[in-house]
């Protein structure tokens, strides 16, 4: 088990290096240079050149990338933002918790309504208790998060004034982003739970449990649920990337100072350290989420645990 975790952690290193290199090159291809972006269109060329030199942007691409990797590895320094001159590491440390709060709240919210409704619609297949949740799930999954966010904003902050439409003042600021992001995601969760549950309740061991006279409720919640939820966990973890994508639009809409909106601003200004550093952190978080999902799998399912602690692959 420890070897499995260690191997997975090692595998993250090439991924992070690859991500940083890819993003570094793509951001470098954005037309313009940070000096003229920061000083505006009326600036003199000497000033622009001087600022670029100060930012270290005058060096060739590979030299800059080499310095970036060296600083990141040996000094744990992801550079300074071109625009604000603040260290990227501190900015990320301030902003990542906000993004993670939004994302995890949304996952939790989506599971809280997606899983029980999914189980219900599977157990009551082809009745009204199946049709309504399934239809609802389809409808929700077809919405972009920012649109739900706008509707919520219109109703609950502009009309009713219950929740703030902008910024992070208190826990109230997180409610609408959570719902906006969690609803479409929960729709997908419901559909997965339903199909996974339907598959499970047809398995032999479920029939056996029924045949030996276990209470129907017990069969569903104890025997079937545990197995049906495995794929649901995987889907929840693996779509974390999609969720972060939706989270970016939601953060921007609700004016939350999260990591996503930070990177979006960085892309628009060609702020290489901000974008590279921010995306590396997202990639690391994503890798850890996937690892956690795989481990939770092993935790629940002895067959998989045996596979992990056994020989390679």
């Amino acid at each position: 088990m420890h070897r499995f975790i260690f191997r997975r952690l090692l595998m993250m290193i090439p991924i992070v290096i690859g991500v940083s290199f890819l993003i570094f090159i793509i951001i470098d291809m954005i037309p313009g240079d940070p000096g003229s972006n920061l000083l505006g269109p009326g600036a003199r060329q000497e000033d622009i050149d001087m600022l670029n030199e100060e930012l270290g942007y005058n060096l060739p691409l590979f030299q800059r990338y080499g310095k970036y990797v060296y600083d990141a590895l040996f000094r744990l320094d992801l550079g300074k933002s071109y625009a604000t001159k603040k260290p990227v590491v501190t900015e990320i440390a301030n902003r990542l918790p906000i993004s993670l709060t939004v994302a995890f709240n949304a996952i939790l919210f989506s599971l809280v309504f997606g899983v029980p409704l999914g189980v219900l619609s599977a157990v009551k297949q082809n009745t009204i208790f199946d049709r309504i949740p399934t239809g609802l799930a389809l409808l929700l999954a077809a919405q972009p998060a920012f649109l739900i966010g706008l509707v919520l904003m219109l109703i609950f902050s502009l009309r009713l004034g219950w929740f703030p439409a902008n910024g992070v003042a208190s826990w109230k600021s997180y409610v609408m982003p959570m719902i906006a992001l969690g609803l479409p995601y929960g729709g997908r969760q419901l559909r997965f739970t339903r199909s996974s549950m339907l598959e499970t309740i047809r398995q032999d061991y479920v029939r056996t449990a029924r045949a030996k006279g276990a209470a129907p409720r017990l069969v569903i919640w104890k025997h079937a649920m545990k197995n049906a939820l495995l794929p649901v966990i995987t889907v929840a973890g693996n779509s974390f990337g999609i969720l972060i994508g939706g989270a970016i639009a939601t953060e921007t809409l609700f004016g939350l100072p999260g990591l996503g909106s930070f990177i979006v601003a960085g892309i628009k200004q060609k702020d290489v350290p901000v974008v590279t550093g921010g995306i590396i952190v997202f990639a690391v978080v994503f890798s850890f989420v996937i690892l956690a999902v795989d481990l939770s799998y092993a935790f629940v399912d002895p067959r998989i645990r045996a596979k992990y602690s056994g020989r390679r692959d």
Partner: peptide
């Protein structure tokens, strides 16, 4: 597959935005 792992580790919205910014 390892190359694709790199691509999938980047949030897709941000990746698409960066590519659009780079290509115009």
């Amino acid at each position: 597959m390892r190359a694709l792992d790199i691509f999938s580790a980047i949030p897709s919205t941000l990746f698409a935005m960066a590519v659009v910014a780079a290509m115009g």
